[in-house]
Design a protein around this nucleic acid. Structure first.
Lengths: 203, 203
DNA sequence: GGGAAGGGTGAGCAAGCGCTTAGCGGCACT
DNA sequence: AGTGCCGCTAAGCGCTTGCTCACCCTTCCC
């Protein structure tokens, strides 16, 4: 993803300086991790002095919270949209995986923060995020349950399989390399196929 | 895993104090992450003063390297053993996944460090570890290739599927909760089944 | 033209960091 | 009993960290 696209992805954040700080923080957190990133690093990537950060965010953790929250809201919206769409359970599950994986590949920097920096959130922020994560899990679980009920899927352990499907998608943020030869679309397609094979009834 | 079991898992490390430091570091790194863990925290968990750490390890990073190295050696040995075993490709792939997943569940603290703290390694240590990771990937890939050649598997993208299988197993270290109701054996069994469904020829 | 407000800076504080050093106590060996 | 050594500690050094504060521009309204 280009720098311009990154800035556009955070378009709803104003003013401009606050958005630049978020974009800079996403880069830095994804590259080095939250704890290894300094406020000076974030500020200088955004072209500001260290003090400027504190005009827009109370603490470094609040920046992390902002990023994590937006990422989780997007993820949840994506999964619930797929759940509520028209079509067979197989079609809806494939659509959910395709979208979720493509997002984690395309926005793998944000994805890394969303998925791997939860432990750095303040307690009250963490509690809020956990609610959304449970809802995401429930969205996938309900599609799988639908497929089993309709006789499309043959799944012995619905909860365990839900966990595995989500886990598979999430981990894309860890290994995806934009310089590699796989595009986000291709990975989404491959994964949608693999997930369908995991759940489909053999016939 | 109990504290005694943890200590035994690092049994080959001597003297006793060095082993206690490693066990303490594994706990601390897994809980908070490498960068958020202080040498004072590690030392006090091991029942020593901060300075004692430096008698056994030159730096905090060397402790991480020790942990990462042992973990990678174990992982690789496990996967290569499964690859070289007797049996069909399906049997060998299932055995590999079962063992790999069980290990990541049972030793999920070590697993987290092995899989998620690579970026904190010194450059020369990282390079050494990357070699082992490539060998691990190659072990799984060769079993899948065997299965395709034997007509047991139907896999369009061998490399992509290898990546997905490894990714699925690795991510167990992130979500596994020993207080949950799933045992490492159960997760291993579930995952072996899911992976076979991902690759098997429908007939 | 004067005052308020908001986005920005340079300098720096208190705390905590990784790591070092001087020295101490107990053990093995002579 | 004396000596050397090894595992360890108390104290603390030099540095970086997250964050603050006094002050400065620019813009806007009257």
């Amino acid at each position: 993803m280009s720098a311009e696209a990154a800035i556009q992805a955070w378009g709803e954040i104003t003013p401009d300086a606050a958005r630049r700080l978020v974009v800079a923080a996403v880069e830095a957190f994804a590259e080095r991790g939250y704890h290894a990133t300094t406020t000076r690093d974030i500020a200088s990537r955004a072209g500001m002095s260290p003090a400027a950060l504190y005009i827009h965010y109370k603490t470094k953790e609040e920046l992390l919270y902002q990023i994590s929250k937006v990422g989780h809201v997007r993820s949840l919206a994506m999964l619930e949209e797929a759940r509520d769409a028209e079509g067979t359970a197989a079609e809806r599950l494939a659509a959910a995986v395709r979208a979720f994986v493509r997002w984690h590949a395309e926005h793998h920097t944000t994805g890394r923060i969303v998925q791997y920096e939860l432990g750095a959130l303040a307690e009250e922020h963490f509690a809020e995020i956990v609610v959304m994560r449970r809802q995401s899990e429930e969205a996938i679980r309900s599609v799988i349950r639908d497929g089993v009920a309709a006789g499309e899927f043959d799944v012995a352990d619905v909860s365990g399989t839900t966990l595995a499907v989500l886990s598979l998608c999430i981990d894309v943020a860890r290994w995806f390399n934009p310089a590699g030869h796989r595009t986000p679309d291709e990975v989404g397609e491959l994964y949608a196929d693999l997930v369908l094979r995991m759940v489909r009834r053999a016939d």
